[in-house]
Computed example of a mutant assay.
Amino acid sequence: MSERATGERRLPAGTAAAVLLVAGIAVLGLVLALTGRPSRSAAPDAGSAPAATAAAGDAVPPATGCAPRDTDPSLPQEPPADVTWSVVSTAVLPTSAAAGPTRFEGPVARCYARTPRGALMAAVNLFYRVGLAAPRTTVAQRQVVAGPGRDEMIRQLRQVDEQVRPGELAQVAGYRFVSYTPDTTVVTLVNGSAAAGSLKSLDVTVQWQDGDWKLVARPDGWTSTPATSLHSLVGFTPFGGV
């Protein structure tokens, strides 16, 4: 496990299984774990601030000092050439010195290039990492666009207390760009396994804000569209570390 993964040991199933839609159910904290185990709701933290005020991460300065080198404006037909993969809790996530992330602060992986490749790397990392943080709301507060969707996400993240065991989490398997601008990008991610017949696709949106890409949450707290089952990766670019 890489040094970047230090402190990223917990992966609440109520977030990861829901956010990653492995079972095709998408509501945070209201899902079945991959093994069919019912999610457990944790008792509310009496000392926790209401979700609407849990935005301390907004005070984090823009991504100054970042140095991703990628400047290619074309949509990638292949993943970044310098991608390496690291285990972060139960997820295998990509890093690119050219496209990002290039800065790691606990569970937060930031500094992405403002290019299609940077947006792709952000979409994969933020989509998975939002369920890996300890405390659970760290990534949501710092790397999800502020608004009702993030508030609802944080509210739900505070209420779940369950883990996905190694081997249960569907890993990223491919991607396809839906749309790209330097300000907003929509990427269809595929996770699961073709061999196991568990491939699913879902759309993830990232937005350029405060000098970096951030994840966009829907008003209901979802971090993606509902999942669609696939039979193969035809039409998608394979992209995965397992």
Rank of each mutant, 00 (worst) to 15 (best):
M1K: 12
S2M: 12
E3I: 13
R4V: 14
A5D: 14
G7N: 03
A13L: 12
A13N: 08
G14W: 04
A17H: 06
A18F: 05
L21H: 11
I25H: 14
L28K: 08
G29A: 04
L30P: 00
L32D: 09
L34T: 08
P38V: 04
S41T: 09
P44M: 10
P44A: 11
G47Q: 14
G47C: 15
S48D: 15
A51D: 06
A52F: 13
A52R: 14
A54T: 09
A56M: 13
A56I: 10
A56R: 10
V60A: 11
P61D: 07
T64L: 15
C66K: 13
P68M: 09
R69V: 10
T71E: 14
L75Q: 04
Q77E: 14
E78T: 09
D82Q: 05
V83I: 09
T84P: 05
V87Q: 15
V87S: 15
V92A: 08
L93T: 00
A99I: 07
A99H: 01
F104P: 08
G106R: 04
P107W: 01
V108G: 08
G118P: 07
L120V: 02
A122M: 05
A122Q: 04
A123I: 01
N125Q: 14
V130M: 13
L132N: 08
L132Y: 11
A133Q: 04
R136P: 07
R136C: 07
R136D: 11
T138H: 05
A140E: 08
A140Y: 03
Q141R: 12
Q141L: 12
Q141N: 11
Q141V: 07
R142F: 06
Q143C: 10
V144M: 08
A146T: 06
D151R: 09
E152W: 03
E152S: 03
I154V: 14
I154P: 01
I154Y: 08
I154F: 04
I154N: 01
L157R: 01
L169Y: 03
L169G: 02
A170R: 06
A170E: 08
Q171G: 01
Y175R: 02
R176A: 11
T185W: 02
V187I: 11
A194F: 03
S198N: 13
S198E: 13
S201N: 05
L202M: 15
D203T: 05
T205K: 02
W213Y: 09
K214F: 11
R218A: 15
D220H: 05
T223V: 15
T225H: 00
H231Q: 14
H231V: 10
V234G: 05
V234C: 01
F236C: 05
P238L: 06
F239V: 01
G241F: 02
